[in-house]
């Protein structure tokens, strides 16, 4: 079966950062909003169509996976996304250091966080008013 992917259309992005807020609330820590796993960069000169969205690309040969000493990063067979198995994580943050794209995010005393496409129903997509994100 063809896996769905999180498609990004930065030219549609208005840098409203709803995606970040949606993500934070979709991954709460102790009932409070967590660290967003997606990041929208507004163009410095405010030009429309020049904003950027950075989110995990679920790399085929992922640096985070190969850096993890505890085998805590796994690919979800249903979504194809790499997710963190928290029970195995030793919080050494090696994955954070290893991801060359800045998509593995540290959370002070918590587990590092990364995009897991919300288990197949990404919150960011639903909350993007500009249709800059699609999951298909």
């Amino acid at each position: 079966m063809e896996k769905k992917l999180l498609h990004v259309y930065p030219q549609r992005c208005t840098a409203c950062r709803n995606c970040e807020i949606a993500c934070s609330f979709a991954h709460p820590i102790d009932g409070k909003a967590g660290v967003a796993r997606i990041k929208a960069f507004g163009d410095k000169e405010g030009r429309v169509g020049h904003n950027q969205i950075v989110v995990c690309m679920q790399c085929e040969d992922a640096a985070c996976v190969s850096a993890c000493p505890a085998n805590a990063l796994w690919r979800n067979p249903d979504t194809g996304a790499i997710y963190l198995l928290e029970e195995r994580c030793i919080r050494c943050h090696s994955c954070v250091a290893a991801c060359p794209f800045g998509n593995m995010r540290p959370q002070a005393d918590e587990f590092p966080s990364k995009c897991d496409v919300c288990g197949g129903d990404p919150a960011c997509v639903k909350f993007c008013p500009a249709n800059a994100l699609e999951y298909k």
């Binding site: 960069f41 950075v54 640096a63 190969s66 794209f101 800045g102 998509n103």
Partner: peptide
Amino acid sequence: RTGMKVEEYFVCVKCKAAQTA
């Protein structure tokens, strides 16, 4: 363990994301 260059680790997450952007 990974074969990446040591220097590649010396960029913080924020800068890496910005660089990606």
